[in-house]
């Protein structure tokens, strides 16, 4: 990974992707031929003085769905809508905005009345073999998990998102933002970047899932 600021986190939360971004100066993400999925947060633009977007690597996103049947689970926090059956997997459905403690659109607003979409996000443990080819098992690395073992640990989350989902090619000109009062749960976020359309938020998905 480059020394520059980055706006594309690794498929499974590669720590190089967003760690300590606030202390770095350069402006451009230097990965080429990479794509990311961007969608607006369902939060009022006024809270941040600019539209907030969530960013995911294209390899994290498994499917974009119009609607699913969601089964609520008693005693679950408000950011979890419930669980759904997706490709024979039981997948939790959540609201990223509520999870991060962000202000959300009032129910009666026109934005909320637009039909939402659901994105299935794959979550792998850190140091995905896709980003980092597995080291051979050796005396120096006796506890390294095989790719198959890591795949067993992967999980999925389904996010309810605004319908305007797009794919954007990297690099994205942006500037890291160190202080964002409009994200109360800052520890669940890898990085926040200001770009021409507002703000890009890279969420620490593995922390959420675990």
């Amino acid at each position: 990974m480059e020394e520059n600021n980055k706006t594309g986190q690794g498929e499974n939360g590669n720590p190089e992707a967003g760690a300590d971004i606030g202390n770095r100066i350069p402006r451009f993400v230097s990965r080429t031929d990479r794509k990311v999925v961007v969608f607006p947060a369902m939060s009022p633009a006024e809270i941040s003085d600019g539209q907030i977007y969530f960013l995911f690597s294209i390899r994290q996103v498994e499917e974009i769905i119009n609607e699913v049947s969601v089964q609520s689970v008693p005693f679950s926090p408000s950011y979890i809508e419930g669980v759904t059956l997706w490709r024979n997997h039981v997948v939790p459905v959540i609201s990223l905005e509520e999870l991060l403690g962000m202000e959300t659109m009032p129910d009666k607003s026109g934005f909320r009345l637009l039909s939402t979409r659901l994105i299935t996000v794959r979550i792998l443990p850190p140091f995905s073999p896709v980003e980092n080819p597995p080291l051979p098992v050796s005396a120096e690395n006796p506890q390294h998990l095989s790719y198959a073992e890591k795949r067993k640990k992967e999980g999925r989350i389904m996010l309810r998102v605004a319908p305007t989902i797009r794919m954007v090619s990297l690099p994205i000109p942006c500037t890291p933002v160190s202080s964002v009062g409009w994200i109360p749960k800052r520890d669940l976020v890898r990085g926040v970047y200001e770009w021409e359309e507002g703000y890009l938020v890279v969420v620490h998905m593995f922390s959420i899932f675990s």
């Binding site: 689970v73 005693f75 679950s76 059956l85 997948v91 999980g155 959420i208 899932f209």
Partner: peptide, 19 residues
């Protein structure tokens, strides 16, 4: 098993899901 994203109370009462 119910996803680990759920809190202990949910998982204590509903540890598994039938498909």
């Amino acid at each position: 098993p119910l996803s680990p994203i759920f809190r202990e109370r949910s998982r204590c009462c509903f540890p598994h899901v039938l498909k």
